[in-house]
Design a protein around this nucleic acid. Structure first.
Length: 539
RNA sequence: GGGCCCGUAGCUCAGUCGGUUAGAGCAGGGGACUCAUAAUCCCUUGGUCCCAGGUUCGAGUCCUGGCGGGCCUACCA
């Protein structure tokens, strides 16, 4: 029942410092898309990795008394530890120091060379080792230093380097943007790139001399391939370009590259030009997400996340304390993926308690505990009950389709809002309207055990729908919701299409949720006691 | 200097092609309920849609000019 392949990537990260919540934002957004596509039956591949062929890697390794390779391997282990904790479902993790990357890289650059798009040129310029970029006079600050790294002296570098004829691809890029408006998303990033390319592209230096770490230019071993040319190629070497033709043919071209908005031009101008030159098909889309800033709760200041400001939040701290689902939910609901977002503990706690603990978690708790209390967990006769009442007020198939559309457009916050307002609120409202506690109470005039049973079957259906819809965002909670009752379809087969269509029950429904020792439902998201979190808010 | 985006309720944000009385969540106020994690449900207060012009029968939406905020880029990297 495969619906075709879906290949998506995240930007590869510099392993100079540990991942922070901003880095995590991108990976979560990519993972939601990957999980959603898998759920719908696509042959999905999510590729991530680290960008290791940089001068800073050598410096950091030296400072720690290590060789570069053991250093980057250990950093890769640390990154994967964080991604695993966040339940990022990557299928492969490429390190650019790997042999498969070198082989594919060299093969690719040779093809570009053979196509006549690489030439040698002598130049002299100031080089910033912090940015690993050459700087023009106009970019310098008053002390004639790089504004990003004012503590470093710039190096006057004079050497012969190889250049890629980026300039010649300008017109073709503009044609491509016009013919494929979806290629650069969101819209504002696209406008920026169009204007940049219209203003004219320069040829770009793609090699460095005298580096000991990195990939050799195949026809001239005195030169190493320079950062960007090397880094971008991970997207194809990571699925077997030059080493595994079958895998490459299966997944390329990428359906979407997820990147930070700061590196849009490399992905939307340089990368397509490189691919054209080497005769490789272009990716279908580049999605540039925004940045996450920190809101200082005492001053209300919004600040960048940086080591020098000392405001780096370890994703693992939040995950260990509140769960990966809680972490994922906050960023997907509170930070629009295409724009910037901000993090503060107060907002995190508000979203957690309100949306996760109260609306979602408590809907599950009250449903299961009523089924236990009134029917000892056994909903006899549920096979013959059609749960048509709970979603009678909404057009569920239309809502599900709308949610799917929002996820496909990476409008995750909008998708979650729909799930909460349309589906979960409807469930809670249904309980208030039906008042099952009256239906189950022998002394009351409303007493009607059969009606109560019907309500419970409807609620079990509501939980089923909720579990399916939150699955890409909250994999753990979704599994717990779905494990609440003995639904006939294995969760792995529960696509969005099945959300709006109740499966045929092979046996009556019964509670299968794990219970505490005193027979109660385990809360999905235990509430955060704000009074018990004094230090967290100051962070 | 050139360019892009944003400015809507106390807060975070929707608002489609210009079309009725500008919406949601949270927060605030009032009420109901007791299955549930003091949850949930109902009602409700709250807006100079940044400002000034313009186009139009009609502008939050389009145009011009300001103000404020963010970002990209800046005469060979």
């Amino acid at each position: 029942m495969s619906r075709g392949k879906f290949f998506l990537t995240t930007a590869i990260d510099y392993p100079n410092s540990r991942p922070h919540i901003g880095t995590a934002f991108e990976k979560i957004g990519a993972d939601v898309q990957a999980r959603y596509r898998r759920q719908q039956g696509y042959d999905v591949r999510l590729l991530m990795g680290n960008d290791e062929n940089t001068i800073k890697v050598v410096e950091r390794a030296e400072a720690l008394g290590l060789e570069p390779k053991p250093y980057v391997d250990d950093m890769a282990r640390q990154f994967r530890e964080v991604w695993d904790a966040l339940e990022i479902s990557y299928d492969d993790f490429i390190q650019t120091s790997e042999e498969r990357h070198r082989i594919g890289c060299q093969q690719f650059i040779q093809r570009v060379y053979d196509a006549g798009d690489i030439y040698k040129k002598n130049y002299e310029a100031l080089y910033c080792e912090g940015c690993e970029e050459f700087k023009t006079e106009s970019q310098l600050n008053a002390e004639r230093r790089c504004p990003n790294h004012p503590q470093r002296d710039l190096k006057l570098v004079q050497e012969e380097n190889y250049f890629f004829r980026l300039s010649k691809y300008g017109p073709r890029l503009l044609e491509h943007y016009a013919a494929h408006p979806e290629f650069i998303q969101p819209e504002s990033r696209r406008n920026e790139i169009v204007s940049l390319v219209k203003s004219g592209l320069e040829d770009i230096s793609i090699s460095r001399r005298d580096f000991t770490w990195g990939i050799d230019i195949p026809w001239d071993a005195e030169h190493k391939i320079y950062v960007w040319f090397d880094a971008l190629l991970n997207y194809i070497t990571g699925i077997g370009y030059g080493t595994d033709p079958a895998l490459f043919a299966r997944y390329w071209p990428a359906d979407v590259h997820f990147i930070g908005k700061d590196i849009t031009r490399f992905h939307c101008a340089l990368w397509p030009a490189m691919l054209w030159s080497a005769g490789v098909e272009l990716p279908r889309q580049v999605f540039a997400h925004g940045f996450v800033y920190l809101k200082n709760e005492t001053t209300d200041e919004v600040q960048k996340i940086s080591k020098s400001l000392g405001n780096v939040i370890e994703p693992l701290d939040i995950v260990r304390k509140f769960s990966s689902d809680a972490f994922r939910y906050y960023f997907m609901r509170e930070c629009p993926f295409g724009g910037d977002g901000e993090f503060s503990f107060t907002r995190f706690a508000g979203s957690y308690n309100g949306d996760l603990a109260n609306n979602l978690g408590n809907l599950f708790s009250r449903t299961v505990s009523m089924a236990l209390r009134y029917f000892e967990g056994q909903l006899a006769g549920s096979q013959s009950i059609a749960p048509e009442e709970i979603f009678a007020g909404i057009d569920l198939p239309a809502v599900v389709a709308e949610i799917a559309g929002e996820i496909e457009d990476c409008r995750y916050a909008a998708a979650l809002e729909l799930i909460w307002r349309q589906v979960l609120d409807t469930g809670n409202r249904y309980i208030e309207e039906q008042k099952p506690w009256l239906l189950a109470s022998p002394g009351k005039p409303e007493y009607d055990l059969e009606a109560c049973r019907r309500v419970m079957v409807n609620l079990a259906e509501g939980v089923r729908v909720a579990a399916i819809l939150v699955k890409p965002f909250l994999p753990d909670a979704a599994a717990k919701l779905y494990a609440g009752f003995n639904y006939p379809t294995p969760f792995a087969e529960a696509t969005f299409a099945t959300a709006a269509r109740r499966p045929v029950l092979t046996e009556d429904l019964r509670v299968t949720a794990p219970l505490t020792d005193d027979g109660k439902v385990t809360p999905l998201f235990p509430k955060i006691d704000l009074k018990a979190e004094p230090a967290a808010g100051k962070k």
